[in-house]
Design a protein around this nucleic acid. Structure first.
Lengths: 185, 185
DNA sequence: AGTTTTGTTCAAAAAAAATTGAACAAAATG
DNA sequence: CATTTTGTTCAATTTTTTTTGAACAAAACT
């Protein structure tokens, strides 16, 4: 590791220059812009920036990319990319692609809106809906046993939340059906 | 816990007991649970906990509440409540109610799903969609002037994003129409 | 078998977001 | 008009989330 410095004093700035980043890792301006668009997009969904960057990069890259390449193109840490890729894979937003003659895993973006939406619904929305359903059922029991003067009001409110949840579930199905249609542009 | 000798030396815990919180500020267990449900709910929407608490409290309170009351019931700071209420008001999730003989503003939760959804779409989703639209238009121009070998690929991708956005907009309208229906339970 | 390459994990650091609280302004009260 | 009440604002603090990077494990090479 520690190489004997054969030339007396070196400038720390020069020592810490980026040695990674071969010129082929340079992103085109368009690519940068698309990635920025995705970074913004995923923020609405409550996902971290790195996830937006990784998906954006894969989406706007003609060929599948290996983890190292993503690291050096985005200049973010290996850990971030590893975690981000796992997350995106779990969501079905990214898929591994075999590249002959290369030992590394390569990934491409899944670019069908329907698949993306379904993955997000399954991975992020449904779990929440389900846990809410459980708690709501407990609440119904509590409200029935309640003796306070507000008991009636509470019951009405809890019924209303149940109604919301039901309609939320219906909406997800509608979304799904809508995105499933073959689009005639 | 440490059984306190009622004589001489006082325990700091006892000294720092909450002097606010008159007994009428106590929340019922059901109310606490409903609030917890909302806190969880708003997290999916990317909103801060305090907003969930405030909306939840108003939703499960039979009467409109003033800012002070919210502060002491939730035991969070006045600043948080003030900001949270403004946010909720802007979204149309909460509305001021006149209470005669009381100088303070009072608020109730708006409890119609349609109104809530519309407010969220207008306040949080549409602004993002619009800024994305602008950026996308710039991107289209860039892609047309691009000369790189990937130009065709880039154009296809950018068209696709435009397609997503279009369908996203349609979906919002569908959601709106669906929630607008009179619900036959 | 030893070495290199590839990818994961997780504690620590950094960054981002939410909350607090005190200072302030505006309006109402006496 | 001085005082109190009510509500807002924002810098500082706290909390939460994200990112980093080094240690590790597993597989692939020689």
């Amino acid at each position: 590791m520690s190489s004997s410095p054969q030339t007396s004093i070196q400038n720390p700035e020069q020592l810490s220059q980026k040695l990674t980043n071969s010129n082929s890792d340079q992103l085109e301006i368009i690519q940068r812009e698309v990635i920025a668009l995705f970074v913004n997009g995923v923020r609405v969904l409550g996902l971290p920036k790195s996830v937006g960057e990784i998906y954006g990069l894969l989406f706007i890259s003609p060929d599948p990319l290996a983890l190292d390449v993503i690291v050096s193109k985005l200049e973010i840490s290996k850990g971030s990319v590893s975690q981000g890729l796992r997350f995106l894979r779990n969501l079905g937003a990214v898929k591994p692609v075999y590249v002959s003659g290369d030992r590394r895993d390569h990934f491409t973006a899944v670019a069908e809106l329907k698949k993306l939406a379904n993955g997000f619904i399954r991975g992020e929305l449904n779990p929440n809906l389900e846990s809410a359903t459980l708690r709501l059922d407990e609440l119904k029991v509590m409200a029935n046993n309640d003796t306070s003067p507000n008991s009636d009001f509470f019951q009405e409110r809890i019924r209303r939340i149940g109604n919301w949840r039901r309609r939320g579930g219906m909406l997800l199905k509608i979304v799904n059906r809508f995105l499933g249609r073959t689009t005639r542009v």
